[in-house]
Design a protein around this nucleic acid. Structure first.
Lengths: 146, 146
DNA sequence: TGACAAATGCAACTCGGTTGCGTTAAAATA
DNA sequence: TATTTTAACGCAACCGAGTTGCATTTGTCA
């Protein structure tokens, strides 16, 4: 199931243009199981014959973040990664094979932590909760990590 | 209370040289209440008359990370930040005034989350747990965030 | 279909971080 | 304490993710 159609509709209602890039980018993020780097985005788009300049991708991502449709996440690598806001959750990232697992089962823990802030009167706008390590497979064939 | 002396001693025992920069850097990280950026490190060192090139700071931080005495953390900003491993905990970062509060009271939540991974056989090597938002003070005088 | 602003492509740029190499200074030895 | 060795340093040049300015293209609406 993809969230892309709803997002595109919402943007159209807000009178924003639906360009080839904007549409394809939202669709790609909507079907990706993990947050994507700009490099990955360009590669994926190329596969579906949408050839774009990195500048346009960055500007598009900034636009979508302003509309609160996209969020930046970090796995402690060099570059940033991006995901649809509606798909926001947390990840276990294998440092060797790069496999990403969604951590749906942590949501209650995170909610619980955010309760703590209510008491402290700190208004949480954003959180980073990611776990980096080795997946089951890669623990066996242990070599160098990324 | 500073952790610097113990760390320096340990390095000396491992036959590493204790240079002016190495010593001053460990001491600065040891007295800082928050993880520091390289820019901040250079500024702090300058105040105590230790003038160093950014290259040396980066190399020193890489060395200290290899020795597992220092960790890289990210607050979702441009650059990275660094802290002593023994001081590792999590933070609430105000996006306006930059104030950083240690989240000692989250440790039990994080331990709990890591329990989850034991069941999944995912070996956690590192985690990112940071909360970004507005502190009590800045919520009142609300303007632009960083 | 034409007009117009929004979005795009491209070149040049910024800036955090890295690399190569010649120089300096910790610390072991005499 | 002077001498030797080599780890650590400073500097210049570089790398690459992300940004900016501007001319060109394209989505939308009359």
């Amino acid at each position: 199931m993809s969230y892309a159609i709803a997002i595109i509709d919402q943007l159209r209602n807000k009178k924003f243009r639906i360009t080839r890039l904007r549409k394809a980018l939202i669709e790609e993020l909507g079907i990706s199981k993990k947050p994507l780097s700009v490099e990955e985005i360009i590669k994926h788009l190329r596969k579906r014959k949408v050839i774009v300049h990195k500048t346009s991708v960055y500007r598009q991502l900034i636009f979508l973040m302003e509309q609160d449709e996209v969020r930046k996440v970090t796995f402690g690598e060099k570059g940033d990664r991006f995901e649809l806001t509606v798909m926001h959750h947390h990840h276990a990232v294998c440092q060797k094979c790069g496999e990403v697992e969604d951590l749906l089962y942590l949501e209650s823990n995170i909610k619980q932590m955010e309760q703590t802030f209510l008491k402290k009167r700190f208004k949480v706008e954003r959180h980073l909760v990611e776990f980096l390590g080795l997946c089951k497979k890669c623990q066996k064939e242990k070599t160098k990590t990324i």
